[in-house]
């Protein structure tokens, strides 16, 4: 039963990360290769506060999310105006920089040896509840004014701007929301595994989340959730095929991109509000 619980917990944490990517990539069309580094920020900030200063859990969460937001603002503010390719490059560089900092501030973070002894506060119910709440928030975001503006931006930025949408502000909002969600996921992760090391948060993790979002279909929140649940839990169950896991993912995603570019779920939503909202293929 422990195994099942841990699979569910890890799946829900991945789901939180995927939600962050869904807001940034799925809704807004920006590629963040440094999304996992927000997770690192969350895990490390909360972890260090918990170990060294015995800060209570809720306060540590708040501090970690705040730090994630600040980092998001620092990276987002200058880059959001740039070309989309550059945003992926800058976020990538940001991820590398965070890992380098974590590796080099040995006295605080334990360096490459990792940070161990984080108290284990994350419980199954907390994670499941957080994931559900997060899905609810993202779903509402998608249908809010901001979400619709994001979709407009992604499809055609020039047209969206000429309709009077403040593109930079909308992009920054989406970016910050994702940063907050992902750093929260990081706190959950750190307080569950009780041990974190910089290598866990490299760009491969961010790329995997992006792949999951595309697997489900970038226009469908339902798709992203289902893809996250299946793709994140399957490998835990099918441990024996772990070597081939990524290869199989990649082949599937290539097939999807080639033959069903809207992803498995297309634009389908389980609980579509106000009828079906039509969105185009994306920018």
């Amino acid at each position: 039963m422990d195994l099942v619980f841990s699979v569910i917990t890890f799946t829900c944490i991945t789901l939180l990360g995927v939600m962050g990517v869904f807001v940034v990539t799925g809704l807004t069309g920006l590629f963040s290769f440094g999304q996992a580094s927000f997770m690192a920020i969350g895990a490390y900030v909360a972890g260090v506060l918990g170990i060294k200063y015995h800060m209570p859990f809720p306060l540590a969460i708040a501090a970690a999310v705040l730090c994630g937001l600040t980092a998001g603002l620092l990276v987002g503010l200058p880059t959001i105006k740039l070309r989309r390719d550059y945003i992926s490059l800058v976020t990538f560089g940001f991820g590398e920089a965070i890992i380098a900092i974590l590796n080099n501030s040995v006295s605080f973070t334990g360096g490459a040896m990792g940070l161990s002894g984080i108290p284990k506060y994350t419980s199954l119910w907390l994670v499941v509840l957080s994931a559900a709440l997060c899905i609810y928030i993202v779903a509402n975001f998608k249908y809010s004014k901001f979400g619709r503006q994001c979709l407009a931006l992604r499809s055609d930025e020039l047209a969206a701007r000429s309709m009077g949408i403040d593109a930079d502000r909308v992009k920054l909002t989406a970016f910050l929301l994702a940063a907050a969600i992902t750093s929260y996921a990081g706190v959950m992760y750190g307080y569950y595994t009780t041990y974190v090391e910089p290598g866990m948060f490299d760009w491969g993790v961010s790329a995997e989340w992006i792949i999951i979002v595309f697997f489900g279909g970038i226009n469908s929140l339902t798709g992203a959730v289902v893809a996250a649940l299946t793709l994140a839990s399957l490998p835990e169950i099918l441990r024996f095929a772990s070597e081939w896991r990524i290869v199989i993912y990649c082949v599937i995603v290539l097939i999807i991109l080639n033959f069903r570019p809207t992803g498995i779920f297309g634009e389908y939503e389980l609980f579509a509000k106000h009828g079906r909202t039509k969105t185009s293929k994306g920018a």
């Binding site: 590629f31 970038i218 990524i246 990649c250 991109l257 570019p261 293929k281």
Partner: peptide, 18 residues
């Protein structure tokens, strides 16, 4: 298919990982 640029991008990341 004249797919949007995003798809090329994802396709290339996936191919690289593969």
């Amino acid at each position: 298919n004249k797919s949007p640029v995003i798809y090329y991008f994802v396709s290339s990341i996936t191919m690289g990982m593969l």
